[in-house]
Nucleic acid binder design. Structure first.
Length: 637
RNA sequence: GAUCUCGUAGCUCAGCUGGAUAGAGCAGCUGCCUUCUAAGCAGCAGGUCGCGCGUUCGAAUCGCGCCGGGAUCACCA
């Protein structure tokens, strides 16, 4: 609620009371933007009150309008269309407001920490067996931007990254490198470390597939002589299941058989052995693990730097994967969990409309959920002041987090209600889902490079950098390319699945990051030109009495007026798209103004200076908004 | 089978705590660079808001049902 809203709602409450003896609380009165077709700045819909006023909507609106015009100096005029009361707010109000905020350099932002809330926001959370791809880009950009938005709302934010650095999938890359790597290193191959490790993850699959397929083929041909009696028995059970399975369950039964075939390959046996060695602390395995993970981290560091994301706190699964077991034991004694005959531990969530969920395997080892319970508990202990714990994770894990928060709550963690799953939709390509098997996965590093290369080509073609030094030009290409990418992804509501069309994302016209950057650069150019002409726009003085606002100028000030609410809204929704849409709209309005209204050529000196100040304020908002999206704005382009 | 989610212009998306004739961008078509950066501006064209029923003075927005896409429900992570 803005100052204007609260002033008007109080007056309207008084009006309703004195005109119709109606008791309506000011807080319950809401306004909406005046439709562009009609005159006015803010609109009250009176339909809700007509039952009580016993008058027609038009009559009711007219009476309220007249009351406001007489009692509120800032209400200059009003008009009524059906049940809509459109109020015209006087120019001095808008100019007075602008004058008030001109001295601020972060208008709309709350001071960091002013809310007294500390929020931990987890994002990125990569696996160390392959490089980052397009999906990770959305995760990183989203998490990073939401962190900034929450800070702009006055919160202290801890940016956390939980690295998935252990497990079967990591051992696959390690084993493949050991078996087929011939000692390759990032140095010897001039490959980025994460890409080299990813190469061996793929290599593993290449050797693995023929092995399990051979198992299936053998079994189909009745060759089962390699199996021990126990395995043979399981195979018979699986085959029988497949045979009697209904049409619908056939896939599932086939998957189970395939899993068993994978299990019994030499490669998988070796992988599992490697994982056991790792868990036992075998020095050779640990050394290999460290070496390859270091390669990956060096690679990730580059990618993160290029993306412009940072972290305050790193967590490694290798250090946290044992957490949670103790909590599960405690939960057992509390009766939250139950132990089956085979020793596995479960929670029954059927009362909550969910299913049974496993927390410890029959061999006593943890599953993902166990670790997540453990890390959450650890974070609550480590940061007792935490007001909120946010997980930026794809919506494929909606169920997982529902269960996690429920378990935490059942274990008695009151902080469970402060946990939030920032769930975002998958990124698809125009031809459908990204599939590693079909090689359609878009690599993060490649994509960024492509964007920068395109920015270079476009900029050179337009002849924009003729007077730039080579370093300045390169920096500009990077800024533009990254802006295109980031804006393209962040403008979409995070909750929604989105389509990433490389051709479209590389467009620099229209609703794009580069267009917004360009508008900022134009304003800066304007201000530079003003300076060389000796025009001083830096002061904050402004005489509302001497300026008559054009409609386009009033629209701009109104948009500025709404900015704090936009930042608040983006924070409430955890949605950078709110900022993106706002700043595009603002930029578009400014372009209209810029194109249609003389600024430096204005003869009236008061007006000229006012327009410069207005432009300066718009530039500030563009810059600060883009910062919330993690996007840089150049001074020239 | 169960649960969750999405469906708005040819394409990508806004709008969804109910409000006026549903908005942008891209793609298509017209204009505008001796004038503050044309990565721009102005305009034209493009819609049964998946379908149906209901609630309401009023529904793209809320509820129910159906159709279609996606996801999840593993001793995977």
């Amino acid at each position: 609620m803005t100052h204007l809203d609260s002033l008007l709602s109080q007056q309207i409450s008084l009006a309703l009371s004195s005109l119709f003896t109606l008791d309506i609380k000011p807080e319950s009165i809401v306004f909406q933007k005046t439709n562009i077709e009609f005159k006015g700045d803010i609109t009250l819909v009176v339909f809700p009150y007509t039952k009580a006023t016993k008058k027609s909507p038009e009559e009711t609106a007219k009476l309220i309008g007249e009351y406001l015009k007489n009692s509120v100096p800032d209400v200059e005029d009003y008009n009524v269309v059906k049940g809509f009361l459109n109020l015209v707010i006087a120019s001095p109000f808008w100019l007075g407001f602008l004058k008030e905020i001109l001295p601020l350099d972060a208008y709309g932002f709350k001071k960091k920490g002013s809310s007294g809330r500390t929020i931990m926001l987890e994002y990125s959370s990569p696996n160390t067996n392959k490089p980052l791809h397009l999906g990770h880009i959305r995760n990183n950009l989203l998490g990073s931007s939401v962190a900034s938005i929450l800070e702009a709302n006055g919160n202290k934010v801890i940016r956390a990254n939980l690295v998935n650095d252990r497990g079967v999938h990591i051992c696959k890359s390690m084993l493949a490198w050991k078996l087929y790597g011939n000692g390759e290193t990032p140095e010897s191959t001039s490959m980025k470390g994460d890409h080299l490790v990813g190469k061996y993850y793929v290599e593993y699959e290449k050797h693995f597939a023929p092995q399990w397929k051979a198992n299936l083929a053998d079994w189909n041909a009745g060759k089962t002589d390699k199996l021990n009696p126990k395995e043979l028995e399981k195979l018979h059970t699986l085959l029988k299941n497949l045979e009697i399975a209904s049409e619908k369950k056939k896939d599932r039964a086939q998957d189970e058989l395939t899993d068993f075939a994978k299990e019994l390959t030499p490669l998988m046996q070796q992988t599992k052995e490697m994982l056991r060695n790792w868990e036992a602390g075998d020095p050779e395995t640990i050394a290999l693990w460290k070496k390859m993970n270091d390669w990956v981290y060096a690679g990730f560091a580059q990618t993160y730097k290029a993306l412009g994301v940072t972290f305050d706190k790193m967590y490694y699964e290798s250090e946290t994967y044992l957490l949670g077991k103790k909590i599960v034991e405690e939960g057992l004694t509390k009766g939250v969990f139950l132990r089956r005959e085979d020793g596995s531990v479960w929670i029954d969530l059927t009362q909550d409309g969910l299913d049974l969920k496993i927390l410890l395997r029959s061999d006593g080892t943890s599953v993902y959920m166990t670790q997540d319970v453990g890390t959450a508990a650890e974070r609550f202990r480590e940061f007792p002041e935490l007001s909120q714990l946010i997980y930026t994770v794809g919506n494929e894990q909606d169920y997982h987090f529902k269960v996690l928060f429920l378990i935490l709550s059942k274990l008695g963690y009151t902080q469970a209600k402060n946990c939030y799953h920032l769930s975002y939709g998958m990124v698809d390509l125009p031809e459908g889902k990204m599939k590693s098997r079909e090689g359609t996965v878009v690599d993060a590093d490649d994509l960024m490079q492509e964007m920068i290369d395109t920015a270079r080509a476009m900029t050179l073609e337009l002849g924009k950098v003729d007077d730039f030094t080579p370093e300045e030009a390169e920096s500009l290409y990077r800024q533009i390319g990254m802006a295109a990418l980031k804006y393209f992804i962040l403008k979409v509501d995070p909750r929604k699945r989105m389509v990433f069309d490389p051709k479209e994302s590389i467009d620099f016209n229209g609703n794009t990051g580069p267009f917004i950057q360009y508008t900022h650069a134009r304003i800066q150019s304007l201000l530079r030109n003003a300076k060389t002409k000796g025009l001083n726009h830096e002061g904050n003085d402004l005489d509302p009495g001497k300026i008559t606002l054009l409609p386009v100028e009033k629209d701009l000030i109104k948009a500025i007026y709404n900015y704090p609410d936009v930042i608040r809204q983006a924070g409430v929704e955890y949605n950078p798209g709110v900022i993106a849409n706002y700043v595009f709209d603002l930029t578009q309005h400014f372009s209209t103004f810029y194109q249609s209204t003389p600024i430096l050529k204005e003869e009236n000196q008061e007006l000229l200076i006012f327009r410069l100040k207005l432009s300066r304020m718009i530039a500030q908002i563009i810059r600060n908004s883009m910062t919330l999206l993690g996007i840089e704005v150049p001074e020239r382009m």
